Simulated scan of single mutants.
Amino acid sequence: MSEGLAAPRRRGRPARAAAGGEPAARDRILAAARSEFAERGYDKASIRGIAKGAGVDPALVHHYFGTKDQVFAAAIERAFEPALRAPDMLLAGPHEEQGERLARFFLGIWENPTHREPLLAIVRSAVGNEAAAAVFRDLVSSRLVARVAAQLGVPDPRLRAELAAAQLVGIALLRYVIKMRPLADADPEHVIALVAPGVQRLLTGPDPLDAPAA
């Protein structure tokens, strides 16, 4: 073979020069993916755009994450990671204060600007696209709701956990995404004080249908 000809590149993993270093390139891809989904939405976001934002070849994005659905799943899991610690909060104090702890923990994540922007990207994408909604639903169902339900010693634990999640996610949607007032401007402590008793009843309260007839 002539010395002036380079050996043909094998298919599969991108060349090391294209990779840009590990794990830095992978982290850059996830950060670029979050920005791409936040700015363009799920439908308009593209592997090419994510690669451009990360300064890597699109082949590297496919190598690490596969399809756009899989990139989105990895990006939102990283962004949603703080919220996935919520089940641990249930065991971090008295049983009768679980509602307050969960509400305070959840709203505290949204009040933190560092966490809020990635979460906004997730919610906006999930609301506007069924594929994105399915990815988000699977993450919340398996990594959050199922773990919370496993710690509830009450009937219908899964339903109760989902209802509590619905209440807190609904508050986040109105307060931080839609910015409905006065909720958007209310003091977080006031919101927690009002919502915590309802979350507590959902998690630990008796089933009203089991109450004896008057």
Rank of each mutant, 00 (worst) to 15 (best):
R101N: 11
K44R: 15
E111R: 05
L102K: 04
L168E: 10
R124V: 02
A161M: 08
A79H: 00
P58W: 06
E162Q: 14
A73V: 09
G53E: 03
A75H: 00
R147H: 15
H95D: 15
W110Y: 14
E117F: 00
E97M: 12
R158G: 12
A132M: 02
N112G: 00
S141E: 15
F105T: 11
L84N: 03
G99D: 06
A31V: 08
Y64L: 07
S142E: 14
L139R: 11
P58L: 07
A86I: 03
A164C: 11
S46F: 07
P87I: 00
L152M: 06
D57L: 06
R158N: 11
S141P: 06
A51V: 08
N129R: 02
L168V: 08
L84Y: 05
Q151C: 10
P155S: 09
R104S: 15
A32N: 06
P58M: 08
A45V: 04
A74P: 00
P113K: 01
Q70W: 08
V154T: 14
E36Y: 07
A38N: 05
L90F: 01
E100K: 13
E111D: 15
D138V: 07
D138E: 15
V154R: 13
T67H: 09
R34D: 04
R160F: 09
V148D: 12
A38I: 02
L120I: 12
A149H: 11
E117M: 00
F65R: 01
W110R: 03
P94D: 08
V148G: 12
A73W: 03
G55A: 01
L152W: 05
H95I: 13
R104N: 13
G41I: 01
R160C: 09
F105E: 11
V140T: 13
K68T: 07
Q167Y: 08
Q98T: 12
S35L: 13
L90K: 00
A164Q: 07
F136S: 14
F106I: 14
L168A: 09
R40A: 13
R116H: 01
L168W: 09
A150S: 15
G108L: 09
A51R: 05
F105C: 10
R116E: 03
E97V: 09
S35A: 14
I47F: 05
G66T: 13
Q98P: 04
R158A: 14
H63T: 06
A38W: 04
Q151A: 14
V71G: 09
V135L: 10
S46A: 10
A161Q: 09
A31G: 02
V154K: 08
P157W: 10
D138F: 00
R147E: 15
